[in-house]
Nucleic acid binder design. Structure first.
Length: 275
DNA sequence: AACCGTGTCAACCGCCTTGGG
DNA sequence: TCCCAAGGCGGTTGACACGGT
C-alpha cells in the first residue's frame, strides 16, 4: 500500500493553470483571504487540490513577487547563502523578498551550478575541483551533501569569518543566528574566495551581466515589491493600497491576458482603463 | 522543413514539520 | 503524550522553447 494522497484527487485537474483558473484563484484570495488551503479550491470553484492552489499562488500569483532574471548581485548572494545553508531553498529565498524558493532552486540548478563547474569549482563546496580530486575519497563524500545537513563540529563560527567580507549578505537576525550556529561546517566552507578570485580573473561579472541584462530589462522595470513583502498575508489584503495593487497588475500585464480579467473591474476600478 | 539535443521552469510528488485536539 | 490533518519543503519530472544540423 502506498502513501495516501494528500487529498482526494479523483476528478481533479492537473498540469498548467489556465488564465481562467488563475483568475478564479486570485479573485477568491483577494476577496476572502486564505483560511485553509484545502478549502480554497472548493470555495473558489476550482478542480485543483489545495496544495496546487497554494503553489500557484506562492510561485506565480502572489502580489509581491519580483519577476525577471536574477541580477549579478543576487547570484552572488545565492552562492554565498548556498555555501551556508546548502539546498535549503526556502531559507535562501527568505533573504530575497519577492523571490520564491522554487525560482532560486531552478536558477541554481540550471545556471549557477553550471557556471561554477565551468569555473572549475565544486558547486557545493566552492572548492576547486582539481584540488578536491587530489584530496582523496573522503572529501568526495562531503561534496555529495550540503554542509548544512552534515553532522560536523562547530568549526562553522570560525569559517564563517570568510563570509563576513561580503557585506551584501545581511547579518542573520536572532533566530537565524541561532539557526546558523547549528549549521555545521567543514573545512571547505571558506573556499568561497576561490569563486571571487576566478570571477575577477575571468571577468565573469561582465559575462553574467551581459547574459542577464536581456532577460531582466524587460521585466525589472515593471517589477516591484511591497515593503514587508516577506510577511505579506492575504488575510490583510484589505490593507493593500490601490496603487500597490495597480503596480502588481502592471507587473502581471506582460504575462496574463487582461481580457480575461474584466470581471475584476467591479472590485478594482482602476482595471477599467486597461486593454 | 524536419528532426534532435539542450535549457528552462512550472508543477507535481512524497516526506517532514507543525499545531490543534 | 499521541494522533492526525494541513502546511511546508526539496527533489524531480515533463512540457515547451529554442538553436543547431
Amino acid at each position: 500500500m502506498g502513501r495516501q494522497p494528500c487529498c482526494d484527487k479523483v476528478g481533479l485537474k492537473r498540469g498548467p493553470w489556465t488564465i481562467e483558473e488563475d483568475h478564479k484563484l486570485m479573485n477568491f484570495i483577494l476577496n476572502n483571504g486564505i483560511q485553509c488551503w484545502r478549502a480554497v479550491p472548493k470555495l473558489a470553484g476550482l478542480l485543483r487540490c489545495g496544495k496546487s492552489c497554494r503553489l500557484r499562488w506562492i510561485n506565480y500569483l502572489r502580489p509581491d513577487l519580483k519577476r525577471g532574471g536574477f541580477t549579478e548581485v543576487e547570484e552572488d548572494q545565492i552562492i554565498q547563502l548556498h555555501s551556508c545553508f546548502g539546498n535549503r531553498w526556502s531559507k535562501i529565498a527568505s533573504h530575497f523578498p519577492g523571490r520564491t524558493d522554487n525560482e532560486i532552486k531552478n536558477h541554481w540548478n540550471t545556471k549557477i551550478k553550471k557556471r561554477l563547474k565551468l569555473l572549475g569549482l565544486d558547486p557545493f563546496t566552492l572548492m576547486p575541483i582539481e584540488q578536491k580530486e587530489k584530496s582523496g575519497a573522503d572529501k568526495v563524500k562531503t561534496d555529495m551533501q550540503p554542509k548544512s545537513t552534515s553532522n560536523g563540529s562547530d568549526q562553522g563560527v570560525e569559517n564563517n569569518k570568510s563570509l563576513d567580507m561580503h557585506a551584501t549578505v545581511e547579518e542573520p537576525k536572532t533566530e537565524e543566528k541561532m539557526e546558523e550556529s547549528r549549521v555545521k561546517w567543514d573545512d571547505t566552507t571558506g573556499f568561497f574566495n576561490n569563486y571571487e578570485v576566478l570571477c575577477s580573473q575571468l571577468d565573469l561579472g561582465s559575462w553574467m551581466s551581459q547574459e542577464t541584462k536581456a532577460s531582466t530589462s524587460s521585466y525589472c522595470s515593471s517589477s516591484f515589491s511591497l515593503d514587508d513583502s516577506s510577511n505579506f498575508s492575504v488575510d490583510e489584503s484589505s490593507y493593500l493600497q490601490e496603487n500597490s495593487l495597480q503596480q502588481w497588475v502592471e507587473g502581471l500585464d506582460s504575462i496574463l491576458s487582461w481580457d480575461n480579467f474584466s470581471p475584476l473591474q467591479k472590485d478594482f476600478p482602476f482595471l477599467e482603463n486597461r486593454q
